[in-house]
Design a protein around this nucleic acid. Sequence first.
DNA 1: GGCAGACTTACAT
DNA 2: TAAGTCTGCC
Length: 420
Amino acid sequence: MGITGLIPFLKAASRPVNVREYSGCTVAVDAYCWLHKGAIACAEKLVRGDETDVYVNYCVKYIDMLLSHNVKPILVFDGRHLPAKAETEKFRRERRNNNKRKAADLLRQDRPDEARNVMKACIDITPEMAYSLIKRCREMCVDCIVAPYEADAQLAYLNLAGFAHIVITEDSDLLLFGCERVISKKFLKGFSSTFKVQRGECSAQKPLPLTSQIVISNCIYSYFILSQQVLFKLDLVGNGLLIEQSKLHLAMKVHPDKFSMDKFRHMCILSGCDYLNSLPGIGLSKACKFIKRTAETNISRALTKMGAHLNMANLVVSPEYREKFLVADSMFKHQPVFDPTARKVIPMTPLSEGEQGPGLEQLPADISYQLALGNLDPFTLEKFDDWDPDCNKMVGRQRINIIKNPNFHSRSSLYFSIDT
DNA sequence: GGCAGACTTACAT
DNA sequence: TAAGTCTGCC
């Protein structure tokens, strides 16, 4: 879901780039994005419950593409659902089931084309499907990490902690987690006519289909690739649009000295995010106006005066809303992630003295939980101290010494027990 | 103009 | 599934 309207809002902070420049980088990939697209190609089989590996092969094409660009992928998978999202998940499950019934009805009425369309709407990426991809990745010696909770937070952590220079995702939330630069496909629309196919004979006359975003050394880039059909004939091409954190003030129309990531994150949460719906009548514009007008640095106190700042006499900011706001804020800062070096679950950024965490249940501290997640596989992770923009390379590369787990192949069934 | 909500579309082949 | 488009309301 992300932040509604965020990408167009950030147009002033963006510019087009090409992915070929990032050979030699490590990318953390939101595996769900690929799985979902791959699943569409075999929606009918999945809904019927037939065996298929079409979605795995689809993901492998992307992995191969990255490897061919000398880009090392780390696939990141969603872990357990956040308790706060239980209602949303229930709603989605019911909608999928309704669509399944609808598809069955259409088939009975001999309307297969319509049925196929409805089937695409009941696609659910199951842990079993994710595990099929993980198994294939192991065969290919591609690293996989299952996030304790959301892949987004794990992707941002891998990026900020120096394990991955690039994150591939389709969710603009990555910016709120603190990544410095983001590229999104929505922006591409206005620029697409200027994109040319870099390799191959034809040039793009219409907007090219866009697949992903990548984060490079705290920068997220979105890059798009020609559709599969064209891809086979033309090879892969990656162009995208970059959104830079250093330019976010331009989108908010504030002086750089007056800008902070706290303000940006608070604005986004106010406009409505995955963890908290917005107050009636509040979207990005009003949220931005309020954040710029308030001089109060304590956001909870500032919120009590939001109605006055926006001349909205009817705007009620209840104590409950303010409480939920702080939890949402904490979720973007301190959501639990897996530290592959220490091999344990840690907050994305450390909690300062007396600071409240997002209030998530305590995960098992012992190694069994990570074993169940599949996070004790032999990693080939490397850590980077810094990114040198001048030579476009990472410096201070260090290989992490990770002990191989001898039980690596014997615990596949454990994976399925975690997502309850 | 900004916003919310309903509706439509691409996703892959 | 998520993002874009359209419409009506304030």
